[in-house]
Amino acid sequence: MLWFAFLRLIGLLTTLLAASLVIFVVLEVIPGDPAEVMLGLNVQPDTLAALRTELGLNAPVPTRYVNWLLGMLQGEFGISYTYSVPVSELIGERIQVSLPLATGALVLSTIIAIPIGVYSARHHGKLIDTGIMSVTQVGIAIPNFWIAILLVYVFAIVLRVLPAGGFPGWDVSFSGSLQALLLPVIALALPQASILARVMRSALLDVLHEDYIRTARAKGLSGKATLWRHGVRNALIPVLTILGLQFSFLIAGTVIIENLFYLPGLGRLIFQGITQRDLIVVKSSVMLLVALTIFVTFLVDIAYAAIDPRLRRRA
């Protein structure tokens, strides 16, 4: 198990390094002169020169890459061009919104999806199963930002019970912040829950056709006991894979949803970074999100091995 985790850790570090290289090349090498991109056309030559010095663009490319990496290791992500504050401060503030949003959506979708999937599989072939499957089929097809707009319309404009957007900040109003996150979390979670419920159901149905389920029944276990003791736990293996894959979609989802609800999160930071051509902000926050995705994949791999003993030996 330790050996397995060690190998995965090496894999994690290589992927991280490769990802950072990709981001660096796209943002700093391909455009030629990042300073020109940031300032746009019709710029005074001395302004350009000043920015280049500020960004350290006069150093050779490999040095800049290494400096960027070393900086990030020390928690220094550079200074935002538009906000004139350290990017690390910006990220630190914004992550207080994005992290609860993403984890909230993940937890909510899992809580909804697993019982529904199990229930549907237990009633396989019956009307209720067909009904649940039809609803989830449509649920997958709904874009989360469309649900979000409808939720805003119903709860903020017609019923006026929840805010349509904005975020008061955790220290200003805790309950206000929770309320502000409620609709975004629901909008993100519903389509995810549809996918997860379908995966749970089909994984469970697959497992229920395995020989060892018959063995458990032959032992005398009732259908229900067999389902929980041998079915659900084994079916969680494929569900976990999907959960890991979904995380990257969830990140994309938060970017959209944060913009829609005017939430000051990482996604909005990135988006503002693009419109203001603040490459320093874009570079660091994209790197952070990519690192997060890679790390979640790593965790899923480890969890996988914890559930399935057959994987522990294999590298």
């Binding site: 020989d211 018959r214 736990r233 084994n234 559930i307 399935d308 003993p309």
Partner: peptide, 13 residues
């Protein structure tokens, strides 16, 4: 009951 294929008859996890 004893089954034919001992590998699949046992829960792998």
């Amino acid at each position: 009951m004893v089954f034919q294929e001992p590998l699949t008859a046992l829960n792998p996890i």
